[in-house]
Amino acid sequence: MDVIKCEDVTKTYRRRKALDQVSFSIGENKLVGLVGRNGAGKTTLMKVLAGMLRESSGRVEVFSRRPFNDLTVSANSIFIDDEMNFPPTMTLVELLQEGRRFYQNWDHELAMKLFEYFNLPSKARHQDLSKGMQSTFNMIIGLCARCPLTIFDEPTTGMDSVVRQDFYRALLKDYLAHPRTILVSTHYLNEMEEILEEVVLLDKGQLVLQMPIDELNEFTIRLSGKKDVLERWIQGKEVLLTKETGHDDQSVILKNSFSAEERQEMKRSGVHVSSVSASDACIYATSPKGGVDHVFDRSEDK
């Protein structure tokens, strides 16, 4: 059964379309990364899934239910972002206890252990924490709620790299021990590549691709070599990025639609073939043609 199912989901704010006919589904027990550039619609999509926003059109199903105003969906999913409102009248530990009262699967022992591990001040209030510590605390709530659908929106905001690494480890370990569907949006896909199983890429409110991380690693390819040699290979292909690396040299990134033989042949003709990481692939797949270089390119053939 699919945990998340979206069909032509569109969300409009006034005139602007934050989500434009997004259709995809995510199965049970998957650790999925939701990536995309700023303003791609990641947060909107996550809020729609969490039942906070109502889709303007299309159909959203979480656990085969419409999430907006559904108590069962709310009880079985948790949405963690960096703007969580917690009352200043409660200390962090009291907030964890509230979480324990609300969520049936709550693992309080883990919560307290993580709390101690990350050196969070137990008497402090949420708003007294630094951004990174707030994110750490929110992350603990998200993990320990053990909801069948756990949604993290930019969970690492403000965390230093050590804490980020710890978070990834904790996420993975807890996921393996208690498999559930976890959706994480992140700008640090390169850091999370190893633990994610699947990636959903959004751009300008539209779904660009959804594929397992392994496939994404093979999705694009980098070719570099003499311009005239490359010309033959990239003709008719969708080039994502072209970079001048020397007077005559060029480096291009394009969708990998070459067979193994073709790649062998390219290598023989002096083209350097290298793979592109999933995170770079996502960047190239969604960046404007030519990249920022293009902006600075004032030559006439522009």
């Binding site: 945990v3 009352p87 409660m90 069948p148």
Partner: peptide, 26 residues
């Protein structure tokens, strides 16, 4: 997949307690 079933009245009770603590400033 195991879904937690919740009773609305139960959740209202929990939220009430939570709100009472949150809004104690009144």
């Amino acid at each position: 997949m195991y879904l937690t079933e919740v009773k609305t009245s139960d959740i209202i009770g929990k939220q009430f307690r939570y709100k009472f603590k949150s809004y104690i400033g009144v």
